[in-house]
Computed example of a mutant assay.
Amino acid sequence: MLYRVEGIVIRSMDYGEGNKIITLCTESHGKIGVLVRGAKKVKSRHAALTQLFTFGEFAFFRQNSGLGTLNSGEIIESHFSLREDLYLAAYASYACELLDKTLQDEEVGSFWFTQLKACLEGLTAGKDPQVVIHLFEMKILQAAGYGPSFESCISCGRVDDSGAVSPRLGGRLCRACRHHDPAALQLSPGSLKLLTLFEKMDLRRLGNIEVKDATKGELKAVMRAFIDMQLGLKLKSRQFLDQLDKYEI
């Protein structure tokens, strides 16, 4: 059967001497694997379609629910600039791997696709990559069913000025309930306000937000803790991103 879908390449791997297998995140069919014959050959007309972060239209044949075979395709947005910049490539790779490891094969949902598309567009447009990625992490947690709650205490519902956040319990704790998790992270009012905003915001609505370095540090620590605690993923791209951060001036 011939399928025609819009998708984003979130993984690309060599297969045999001249072929590649790409993994697409699509709006209508979830995550799909597609074999691209001859993609590694110099004169291949499909080579560009196999590049990471490429957003395009893909037509492929597939029997049942197995691996598809590409018939034709057209690039809508190559996101070439993301592959040219080492730091942006690292952030974009992390976003794609995080989605790939979280989204199950054939799991349908336009939310995954639209948020990844907005994430890559935000990085391409020059928005602060850390802010973009932390908001994307929030959307991934929500889509996976582990969305944190920051507006009020997750234990009693009370609202106070406590900045305690528990990745293990799933959100904010008031002073009276702080004892439920002695390991809860203490955040500044600015970080807590931003996380509360992220909880409600669609990535497609993100503007250019200026965030202090200290706040970014807190955001990174708390979102890292939520990802580790709730999803338990080991991502190669995150390790590389951490190495780059050490050398960033």
Rank of each mutant, 00 (worst) to 15 (best):
K117H: 06
D85F: 07
A143Y: 06
C25F: 12
A143E: 07
F60N: 04
L88R: 08
I21H: 07
L35K: 09
I154Q: 01
Q115Y: 09
K236Y: 05
L219E: 05
V108M: 13
S237G: 04
G171P: 13
Y3K: 13
L24Q: 01
L116K: 01
S166K: 03
T102E: 11
L99A: 02
S188I: 05
I21A: 10
M229A: 15
I21Q: 06
N19L: 08
D128N: 11
Q115T: 15
S28D: 12
Y94P: 02
L82Y: 02
H29N: 12
Q142R: 07
K31E: 03
E210P: 02
E77Y: 14
Q230P: 10
K216H: 09
I140V: 10
Q186K: 15
I227E: 08
I10P: 01
R11G: 09
D160C: 00
Y91N: 00
F113A: 06
S65A: 13
K20T: 05
A48H: 01
L2G: 08
E57T: 15
G16A: 11
C153A: 04
K193L: 11
K139N: 11
R172D: 03
R83T: 01
I249V: 12
S166N: 05
A92Q: 02
A47E: 09
R37W: 01
E121F: 02
Y15I: 08
Q63L: 11
L52M: 07
H46S: 13
Y247C: 08
M138N: 07
L197F: 14
R158F: 15
L195G: 08
G190I: 06
D213S: 14
V42I: 11
V165N: 01
F136T: 00
M138L: 10
E137V: 01
N19S: 15
D85S: 07
I10Q: 00
K139H: 06
G7E: 06
S65P: 06
L123K: 04
S110W: 05
S72E: 14
C119K: 04
V5M: 11
R172H: 09
E17R: 00
D245A: 14
L197S: 14
I8W: 00
R172A: 07
K212S: 12
R158W: 14
T69Q: 14
D213T: 13
A59C: 13
G18D: 13
S110R: 07
D213K: 15
D161H: 13
F240D: 03
M229D: 15
A125H: 09
L192I: 10
